[in-house]
Design a protein around this nucleic acid. Structure first.
Length: 319
DNA sequence: TGCGGAATATTACTTACGTCA
DNA sequence: ATTGACGTAAGTAATATTCCG
């Protein structure tokens, strides 16, 4: 994305986005196809891990990835769960056969046979009793199959399950099959469920990131618009001065000198005597043409992300 | 070495469900 | 009791990557 405006005086504004690679710490995959967002993803990259509050951006509210009011609800759910503790099979727990199959193959693709088979059949009510036993989460749940009801029932992960998943996500936002199976075992879930959770978690992260990027770009745009407005005004004034007959007469000696930031040559002052016969009484305007800066040479494009004061830097300390 | 197809992994989009105000 | 908004688990299609013959 590039917005550029230019006039003959060599004033320009540009908004450029450095090459983006929206890298999301894919630790164990090389897949990077879809996310080729043509925007400044890298500079705007923000670690949205649950442990990292977005305080600076979101009014000191700590971002947590569990449902905001989920704690109490889940506690209540646990109480309800215990009531039905003994009523049946754990919906979230993989039938032993399935676990074995997945463990054997080490594969649980959404499109795989295993996953497909577990589609509606695993639409089960999640009624579990969660008993912390070290790191293990023991659950008890009831299958819906007995109702003969094909409707999809929504699983709610327990607080502990969510916490462990979050913790795991912090370490790697993707899982290899081994990790997936291990985590699923630890949580008493099917590998497919862990997989889905990670997929959705990545999607949420990306969404949040996009929102943050969007917000930042909006602010950049506002700043640049304002900057542009000022520069346009300045250009108009310079043009007016240039065309004014009194311009050269009334020109007061410059009180400041401008210097090319790159070559450190001083501009703004160039004696008329050195610029021989360049038309009508050459002037202070002359340096605008004679200095290489005026042909885009050494002009530094304005890059909001190159600014040392990028607001989002504070949010994403690179360690 | 290049090619095609199968298997697998991931994303984007969508649906369905549970919860809350 | 109803309803709409919202969060999220899960399904589906598309696509990229890898592996193998």
């Amino acid at each position: 994305m590039m917005v550029q405006e230019r006039d003959e005086l060599g004033l320009s504004l540009s908004l450029s986005f450095p090459g983006s690679s929206h890298e999301q710490n894919k630790s164990n995959t090389t897949n990077n196809k879809h996310n080729q967002m043509p925007h400044a993803s890298t500079p705007l990259e923000l670690n949205l891990m649950p442990s990292q509050p977005l305080n600076l951006l979101h009014n000191n509210t700590t971002t947590t990835w569990t449902h905001p009011a989920s704690h109490d609800r889940k506690m209540e759910a646990c109480r309800v769960d215990r009531r039905s503790l003994l009523t049946g099979i754990d919906v979230n727990r993989i039938p032993a056969m399935t676990v074995d199959m997945e463990e054997e193959t080490g594969v649980s693709s959404p499109n795989s046979t295993i996953s497909s088979l577990s589609g509606n059949k695993r639409s089960l009510v999640n009624e579990r009793s969660e008993l912390a036993n070290g790191d293990e989460i023991l659950e008890c749940s009831r299958s819906d199959d007995e109702d003969g009801d094909n409707s999809r029932k929504k699983l709610r992960l327990t607080k502990d399950q969510s916490a462990i998943l979050e913790e795991s996500f912090k370490e790697h936002n993707t899982l290899n099959p081994k990790q997936k199976i291990a985590l699923a075992k630890r949580l008493g879930l099917r590998p497919r469920q862990v997989e889905v959770w990670f997929q959705n978690r990545r999607a949420r992260t990306k969404l949040k990131q996009t929102e943050v990027d969007c917000e930042f770009l909006k602010r950049c745009c506002q700043t640049l618009t304002e900057e542009n407005r000022k520069l346009q005004k300045e250009v108009q004034e310079l043009r007016a001065l240039k065309s004014s007959p009194q311009f050269y007469m009334q020109m007061t000696p410059p009180t400041t000198l401008t210097m090319c930031p790159s070559c450190e040559r001083v501009g703004g002052l160039q004696s008329a005597t050195t610029t021989s016969s360049a038309g009508p009484s050459i002037t202070q305007a002359e340096p605008l043409r004679s200095h290489p800066m005026n042909s885009n040479h050494h002009r530094l494009p304005f890059n909001p992300w190159a600014s040392p004061q990028r607001p989002l830097d504070a949010l994403h300390p690179r360690s």
